[in-house]
Amino acid sequence: MRAAIRQERLVPAAALLLVVVAFVLTPLGTGSPLTTFDVYNALQGFAQIGLLALAVGLTMIAGEFDLSVVGTYAVGGMIAVQAGQSSAVLGLLVAVAVGAAVGAVQGALIAWLRVPSVPVTLAAYIALLGLAYAISGGLSVTFTNRDATLWVDQTVAGVFSPRSLLTLAAFVLVAVVLGGTRLGAELRAIGGDRRASRVAGVRVERKLVLLFTTSGTLAALGGALLSFSFASANPDPGLRPLLIAAVAALLGGASLAGGRGTATGLLAGALSVALLAQIVAVAYLPDYSTQLFYAALLAVVVAIDSPGLRRALERVRARTRPVEA
């Protein structure tokens, strides 16, 4: 039981510390010192997955899992590009509005009909993928608004860009809202023990709809910013962004069992994942080593969270204890 508190903070702290130390030490392996550009790149990587990780992580805290965020990410990117050719801000707003609507519909199904979130969001993901294909005709769409593209990725203070700053701002906003209002506690209560939260008087259904609306909004925003940066929108990003976001959320101390996780933890998780990718790039390690690192880190998370494994260990301990206590 005691592991529960520690894990929520320990896992993200340990992950971030490990990765930061490794990042700082990379010059020892490569022989060339780190530059501010390396940090800028790492933060660009963070911007790419951060909002998705935040979206997935928030649903995990409430004991749900939103697979559809990667579909909303694709659709958001596509809509932002098509609606934003003349005005990027308009494109961004339309994309975010669509993302919110998509999330709200799913949230309603999950909250009021009490359908499990995995199949609903999986179906929504497939449908959204189809939508992205249908809007674009299955091809990448070029974003011609060059000013917007240049603006989102310009360097700010050497290491930041408006894109990474916006992503950070989203984390800060969520952290303030969850930490400063009763929403944070209610979200974890819903994930930790839904029956008890109902008994205590939490309006579970409304919170779930709000939650999925938020995750849709964040995912669409992330997708929009990404296509502005790439100056094009890809109708099918594949499952990879979702999986990396899930790794970030899990390293951020959230768990699929729910009831655990904080916005700052998720931030640490997303930063860890981004830094890890940057280390692999800076150290010229083969590409696949990122995947193996993710697998190894997740294996630790899985082992910590397996009740059967814990019981097996207790059994061994009880058997080896002397009979006379």
Partner: peptide, 20 residues
């Protein structure tokens, strides 16, 4: 046997198998 979460586990396995 361990009651590991199947989604997390298979995401990890996917990375390990794909990377491998």
């Amino acid at each position: 046997y361990w009651e590991a979460n199947p989604i997390v586990l298979t995401i990890a396995a996917g990375f390990a198998i794909g990377g491998g």
